[in-house]
Design a protein around this nucleic acid. Structure first.
Length: 316
DNA sequence: ACATCCCCTTAGCC
DNA sequence: AGGCTAAGGGGAT
């Protein structure tokens, strides 16, 4: 086929398909994008829209395929497949983490939810923003940052913005950052961006480092503590054993697994609004030991399930 | 309407 | 070591 021919052009504009066999490749786009791991996806009509690697991705799922288009540049099936971790053997992962009725129930409700492979840089900044914020507010901050510092693109009458580069945020003034409603996080975003921009920290190297080494390294960045480090490791560098613990997870874990924690520790499961460093260590190491090498998947299913219960309870 | 609490926490202080 | 506290501002009640 000659480049530039009519057929070639049509092929370029046609949506691409990834075949999904529900038994061999369980996948649920809705669960994956709504569970709270990524903050920049929105549904317009039947389609989900997001920006990854400077491209708008538009996609929807039918019973046995994932249909997508990307703009302005065409992306490969491999690119989408990698982002959604379609190579993860979910059935195998389920068999490894399905240890009791709590996680069993979460898997039953959220079958097909996949951990994403987000870009480390965007994921890092997103979770520094996430410190002590609720999910709608996090989405707001990231939207403001992208609108202020990213490049605008338009598709189907919706505006999108690329995520700012390390240089964009490293050279922004504190005032400009604060105008994105970052609050006290602005200083951490600024310092961390400068470290990344000046090549004092190699985010790409995390992928090939062990969980422990990668985590220790991440903890050296301003605004990155235990929780943020575990989220970056799980959601962007493929460390599936990472087990982030936030207030939701603390409540969920103490409620579902009280026998594994000290009595006084477990008694005050409700009304929890904070986590001490020792509590983080205790819940995190329990989760990692109990669920094993795919503890991160267990975490995300329990997290999403408990949030979903709360969401539905709220509306009655 | 309006106050108050909460939020996928971190870092600095003691 | 580990407990206490402050830190935007929007969402939820």
């Amino acid at each position: 086929m000659k480049p530039g021919s009519t057929l070639d052009h049509q092929k370029h504009d046609a949506p691409m398909n990834i075949r999904l066999d529900p038994t061999a490749t369980p996948f649920n786009l809705e669960h994956t994008l709504k569970c709270g791991q990524a903050f920049r996806w929105a549904k317009h009509g039947d389609w989900w829209y997001g920006v990854v690697s400077g491209k708008i991705i538009k996609l929807r799922q039918t019973p046995n395929k994932l249909q997508f288009e990307t703009f302005p540049k065409k992306a490969s099936i491999n690119f989408v497949s990698r982002y959604f971790r379609l190579d993860d053997d979910l059935s195998h992962i389920y068999s490894k983490i399905d240890k009791d009725r709590h996680i069993h129930n979460a898997i039953r409700n959220l079958r097909g939810l996949r951990i994403l492979r987000q870009e480390p840089w965007e994921c890092l900044i997103s979770y520094i923003c996430a410190t002590y914020k609720n999910i709608p507010a996090i989405r707001q901050m990231i939207f403001h940052l992208s609108k202020r510092f990213g490049k605008q693109m338009t598709l189907d009458n919706h505006d999108f913005y690329t995520f700012p580069t390390p240089k964009d945020l490293a050279t922004a003034s504190l005032q400009e950052l604060k105008s994105c409603k970052l609050g006290f996080r602005a200083a951490n975003i600024s310092r961390t961006s400068q470290i990344i921009d000046h090549k004092k920290f190699d985010l790409e190297a995390l992928e090939n480092a062990s969980y422990e080494r990668a985590k220790r390294h991440l903890l050296s960045l301003p605004g990155v503590g235990q929780k943020v480090a575990d989220c970056v490791l799980l959601f962007s560098t493929g460390k599936l054993e990472a087990f982030p613990v936030d207030v939701w997870m603390k409540r969920t874990m103490l409620k579902s697994y009280p026998d594994y924690f000290g009595k006084t520790f477990a008694e005050k499961a409700s009304g929890i609004t904070s986590i001490s460093p020792s509590e983080y260590r205790e819940i995190n190491s329990f989760g990692r030991k109990y669920f094993g090498e795919y503890a991160g998947y267990a975490q995300e299913y329990l997290f999403a399930c408990s949030r979903r219960r709360w969401q539905t309870a709220k509306h009655r």
